[in-house]
């Protein structure tokens, strides 16, 4: 079941800003694809001569090897005035696309992997938070996630307790809502869009919609690239490379409830591209 329920999902395959007529040769779930702009400047994605569905949203070109049954998930904040939209750029990681998303949903690693930026000892405790699978939207949500952060954002000037909400609207995409230091009451939006190249290889396209009038665009890009590249060396050293969906292979605690819900949701939908089903 390698070509599973995930075949009909939308995946990011390139930056809109980098579309050109020469095309970008890449892959989706093991199939070589080509992402280019056509004579009218519109995005065109082909696989072996076959034209694939295309959608252009959130700075990226999206495509699918199958027939998407729904439109790409909504991020209402993407249309909100006053936000700056940041194309962070692609980073390749030798890991399962699902491992990349699961790591993004995790806060307990902040003090050890993003030391003095997103976390620091002795502030390692993860307080209880709420996790649910929202049946109406069919999404995983974690809310009331709080964590002490030495430098929560590019615009932060000191340590604060940050509040997070996580959302998984598609098997390889996650949207994070985070306390916005310059705009109390609003949430910064940080996303992780993952393009599955193979079950154990992915291109990761972080994208952000922020309230920050101070930082330069390059500073915003560099902040997020710093964070993601700190994660990359972890992701490439997890064993196995695929995400184990069977309980018993890994040991979750209360801090891992988002991961537990994400794995359960994947399993329920048969979203198993990049997953290990039977403990080996």
């Amino acid at each position: 079941m390698t070509q599973d329920a995930m075949i009909d999902e939308w995946y990011p395959v390139g930056l809109v800003s980098q579309l050109d007529s020469f095309g970008r040769k890449t892959a989706l779930m093991g199939e070589p694809i080509d992402v280019a702009s056509d004579a009218d400047g519109n995005a065109r994605v082909t696989a072996n001569g076959r034209t694939l569905p295309v959608c252009v949203r959130y700075g990226h070109v999206w495509s699918s090897l199958g027939q998407p049954q729904k439109e790409l998930f909504a991020i209402p904040e993407a249309d909100q005035p006053g936000r700056r939209f940041v194309d962070v750029g692609v980073v390749r990681v030798r890991c399962s696309p699902l491992r990349a998303v699961e790591n993004f949903l995790d806060i307990a690693h902040f003090p050890f992997v993003h030391t003095d930026i997103l976390g620091s000892e002795p502030h390692t405790e993860v307080q209880n938070y709420k996790v649910e699978i929202r049946e109406d939207a069919d999404e995983v949500w974690a809310t009331q996630v709080k964590f002490y952060q030495p430098q929560a954002a590019r615009s932060a000037s000191g340590g604060i307790t940050t509040e997070y909400m996580y959302r998984v609207p598609a098997p390889t995409c996650s949207v994070l809502y985070k306390t916005c230091p310059p705009r109390p009451g609003e949430w910064d939006v940080i996303t992780l869009f993952v393009q599955p190249l193979a079950e154990d290889l992915c291109d990761v396209w972080p994208w952000m919609a922020l309230f920050d009038d101070e930082s330069s665009m390059t500073d915003l890009i560099h902040f997020q690239q710093t964070i993601f590249l700190q994660d990359r060396s972890i992701l490439e050293n997890q064993i196995p490379r695929l995400l184990p969906l069977d309980p018993g292979m890994e040991i979750p605690t209360r801090a891992d409830l988002t991961s537990v819900a994400y794995r359960r949701w994947l399993k329920r939908h048969g979203y198993t591209y990049g997953a290990q089903l039977v403990a080996q």
Binding site: A108, H109, P111, F112, V113, E121, T124, S233, I234, N237, Q238, I239, P240, P244, M249, E250, I251, P252, T253
Partner: peptide, 27 residues
């Protein structure tokens, strides 16, 4: 074994404090 049972991270990437070995991922 070179694998933390929590999330599968290689323990050889970790660190030693006193008489214990810690995983680099979640400590």
């Amino acid at each position: 074994a070179d694998r933390c049972p929590h999330r599968g991270m290689r323990l050889s990437h970790g660190f030693v404090r006193g008489e214990t070995l810690s995983c680099i991922y979640h400590g």
